[in-house]
Design a protein around this nucleic acid. Structure first.
Lengths: 169, 169
DNA sequence: CGGCAGTATATAAATACTTATATACTTCGC
DNA sequence: GCGAAGTATATAAGTATTTATATACTGCCG
């Protein structure tokens, strides 16, 4: 169950509420995990019941009372054990990549349009990612830059194929 | 439901059995999707009931009778519609990436060991990925190469920090 | 003052995915 | 001829995730 452990890891950086954790997860793709609040709240309950985190209720300056959690000793131990488990190359699981994998089955025009849209998304994402000095952030930035190069190369290839094809016929 | 659509996409390349589709999915990470057979078989049932694929039973030269599926016109249409849906930058969802994101919280020795293991996994994966000329395969290769560069840089940084630290104390 | 936007928590229902297990057919080595 | 390994299909049970919905508190704009 990775979500729980990622939450423990985030809490190792300091106390936070479910809302905060949700914002960190969706705000930082370099974390390598994402989750909706509807999944985070029950997970925090389980961690609390298991004694891995402790609760402090605090008034919020804006909105209803916050439930802030912090790591317990057991939580820190549990996190370290998870962190020590063996790494493996992730198997991608993303609809966009699956769509890109079928690019060859599309007409040159559609293919070009898809690539240009994806290129745009990539450059947006890259400007949003720019800050941060952790290893994971550096990795994320490098990967986005590489994807951008890939998209440019594929766009160029699609363009040349498109401009050539009338003469070929 | 992306799995169904990825299966349709694979069937667009020619008829196949559940077993075949499972092998293609787990054998080609560039497809961007992965699934166990236990998920594929029910998905194929649903597609069959929905009229998106058609079944032909065939004797297998080895093992029990195969159930080979091929796309129907409805299946091809459904696939094209899915393919035309808007792309978005995938939010990663992988335990290994989450562990890498917490590298900074580990001792220099452990960090180095993790990076070296990950580097090894990457180069293994890269040799296994080498063939293939589709856009998705080119993308996958480029990304793996970039990750290798990243790992090398991080390893070098960890090493220099480790060799410096005795003098710093 | 009424509604909207942002903060904050929560649950139910539906869907997707993993893990474990079962079955059956074939070939090959012992 | 027996067992192991590879091919092939399948289901049940457990877990994880998404989507939809509800509630409540605050400040601000009109």
């Amino acid at each position: 169950m990775s979500l729980s452990h990622v939450l423990l890891g985030l809490l190792a950086r300091g106390p936070a509420s479910g809302w905060d954790l949700g914002a960190r997860l969706s705000g930082d793709p370099a974390l390598g995990w994402n989750a909706e609040l509807a999944q985070i709240y029950p997970a925090l309950r389980r961690l609390l019941r298991g004694g891995f985190i402790a609760l402090r209720r605090r008034r919020s300056p804006k909105g209803p009372p916050r439930r802030e959690y912090r790591l317990t000793a057991a939580g820190r131990r549990e996190f370290r054990e998870w962190l020590a488990e063996p790494l493996e190359i992730p198997k991608p699981h993303a609809a966009a990549l699956a769509r890109l994998a079928f690019l060859e089955r599309r007409s040159p025009e559609t293919r070009l349009a898809s690539l240009e849209l994806y290129r745009l998304l990539l450059s947006d994402e890259l400007t949003r990612t720019s800050s941060g000095t952790t290893a994971a952030r550096r990795r994320r930035r490098m990967l986005l830059e590489t994807e951008l190069h890939w998209a440019d190369a594929e766009i160029a290839a699609a363009l040349s194929r498109r401009t050539l094809s009338p003469e070929e016929r």
